[in-house]
Design a protein around this nucleic acid. Structure first.
Lengths: 142, 142
DNA sequence: GTTATTGTAACTACAATGGTTACAGGTGGT
DNA sequence: ACCACCTGTAACCATTGTAGTTACAATAAC
């Protein structure tokens, strides 16, 4: 299955928080841009807050970036909203038969390969900062 | 969510088909090694067959590798069993608001980044052949 | 204090997955 | 030709993750 759209929504939110940093970024306003329900936005912001990417406060307009956009990369965001623990993008099958030479060793073998593939993906995400995303968004708007 | 365990099961099956190429690889036998239901095995073999990685025939013990293990890499296997079309490991959110500068351009921006990350992962998978997997399995058995 | 907004719980609908049973149809040995 | 075995596939179920929605107590700003 594919990676949840929370990731895309989270990037959208963060970009909006920076671009509209002068305005009041209520969950309803953000939901209007993302085109979803305000509660969905609040849930994602909650995850971003727990990860230390945004500061939140109850009451009015309570979210803002916790760091400058240059210091937030997409791997930070990915990890914040992807609740699967790191190293588990790929799922191994459980309990292969230990009496079989394949079953006995397959998990260790796969783990190595899976970790490499996952790391390669994450390294690409880590290369891209929120800064660059925002630049690209604004540029596209001309 | 994580990538379905069909991928791990498929690799297991292919390795077993090669290692036990002298024996009768019935779906029940393979299921014993993978530790699942024979129908699950037949389903995965069906996908591998459609992708041209194995030859299958109804009746007894009907699956064998269609190519030598050196000519099968894990990206082949991944694509065979992952029914999501390529380029959609990451899901974008639909219908962002076109009236908003962020909503208007976010999809194009994300598409580029997502494709890069996905490609990086797939390149790692493409580097690993079934040959190497089998070597690693057999080596671990000593 | 009143109003607007957040944080969170609860519920629903939906899709993907993996396990299971069932069975029609093909294969190979005798 | 017969028979035992196996495949391919459909159908169904339970589980899980996701996203949308309603509701509401708690909190901040004015």
């Amino acid at each position: 299955m594919s990676i949840s759209s929370r990731f895309a929504v989270a990037i959208h939110i963060l970009a909006l928080l920076d671009i509209n940093k002068e305005g009041r970024n209520t969950s309803e306003f953000i939901a209007g841009s993302v085109n979803t329900n305000p509660v969905v936005i609040r849930r994602v912001i909650g995850l971003l807050g727990k990860a230390g990417l945004v500061h939140t406060s109850p009451g009015v307009g309570g979210a803002s970036l916790a760091r400058p956009p240059r210091e937030i990369n997409l791997l930070d965001v990915y990890r914040a909203v992807q609740n699967d623990p790191p190293g588990e993008l790929f799922a191994a099958h459980d309990n292969p038969n230990p009496k079989c030479p394949v079953g006995q060793n397959i998990q260790g073998t796969l783990e190595t390969v899976f970790k490499q593939a996952e790391s390669a993906m994450e390294n690409e995400l880590a290369k891209v900062t929120l800064d660059q995303i925002i630049f690209d968004l604004v540029r596209g708007d001309r």
